[in-house]
Design a protein around this nucleic acid. Sequence first.
DNA 1: CGATTGTATTTTGGATCCAGTATTACTTGT
DNA 2: ACAAGTAATACTGGATCCAAAATACAATCG
Lengths: 221, 221
Amino acid sequence: MDIEARPPQTTQQYVLEQLRRAILTGQLAPGSAIRQDALAEQLGVSRVPIREALKILEGEGQVIYRPRRGYMVAELALEDFLEVYRIRQILEEEAVRRAIERITDEDIQRLQDAHADVVAAGQAGEIIAMAAANRRFHFTLIDAAGMPRLRRFLSILWDASDVYRSLYYSEESNRERVEHEHQGIIDAVRARDTEDLIRRLGEHREGTVATFREFMAKQDT
Amino acid sequence: MDIEARPPQTTQQYVLEQLRRAILTGQLAPGSAIRQDALAEQLGVSRVPIREALKILEGEGQVIYRPRRGYMVAELALEDFLEVYRIRQILEEEAVRRAIERITDEDIQRLQDAHADVVAAGQAGEIIAMAAANRRFHFTLIDAAGMPRLRRFLSILWDASDVYRSLYYSEESNRERVEHEHQGIIDAVRARDTEDLIRRLGEHREGTVATFREFMAKQDT
DNA sequence: CGATTGTATTTTGGATCCAGTATTACTTGT
DNA sequence: ACAAGTAATACTGGATCCAAAATACAATCG
């Protein structure tokens, strides 16, 4: 027997999850200071696991740290967002180039399943679930590249730029666009057509960026 | 007046520096376990700042963490190295494309200065100084792109793939090659010739990778 | 003699406590 | 009334202590 040992869930991992979630949903607003012992009390743990979770987020660039001043949630201005998104696109492009050469039918099935989850969550209006399924969709493709470090970086970039997602998905028209583009991506993968796939990913990105520009413009008024 | 406050050096930052250095020079060999209180005693601090520094390195992917088992220095097999290097190249390419449009004469001067430092350190046989100057050379160019997050990722990737550098630079022939290629890069920047610059960076990378293949092959015997 | 279970030791994870620094509020002087 | 200096407060950084989990070792049973 060779049973995979379940890695035990430590408190810091729990805290890390909670922090990620709070940042993603905007409960911890970008730019706001993070008070360690308030958080500790709120989560019912001591300050130590809080500090360690914050250190990981610091390494990932999701929070800003200034010695003796504490942590704040990193802000994402439009131009920062565009920068992160641009990096994501470059890396994802590299990943899918490799992925399309090695992807199996089961992977494609998973892709299709993840897409179905996106649609279902969208119709149910469950924003968090939709963001999660969307992530799974993209990373199914990325995983097929078999480049673990590239995957890691994309994962961090994803988290870092997913901050405003919840607002973004709430618009009906965006959901439809995403659904349509995803299906196109799946088709291109099925056909093993690299250039078409790259083109579709590019369009997917441009659609997203355009939507964001509108969104930010609306915010400013 | 808007003076930037000097951030005080905390113990964890000191520990972090020491750990980075130990990993870079190979004192902490890839794959070896990191014993927390041994380190704490050695550096004359408590275990707390050690743990927090390790958390940052975990976020950067330089050490592997398993709950309740501790940390190990991440191993870099040849294929891992190639993967990291490939990512670096892609991102550096994006950076220099932007950089060449915005770079100033002062930046170019700094580039030339950094290159001079590389040569000087090389002749003096100071490997660590040479690695540092080489890093400065590349990041002078990257900084000119004005993409702070991209810069951050490149910085992490650089550290992660710099592990074997000390061995690498010790060979005379490599030093000469690096010097020659750097000068070519500077010339291309001066001429604002993007395509030539990209081409030269690609060659620079290929030369490095080829050298590494030889090096690893020698190691295996 | 080998394997398995129980025990001791080592090492990490978390809590509490203390010290040093930054921020805020208040007081005092002009 | 406003500014500057000072005192009070709040929060972070680090050390020590304790608990829990993993590993190493030994003893016992088949």
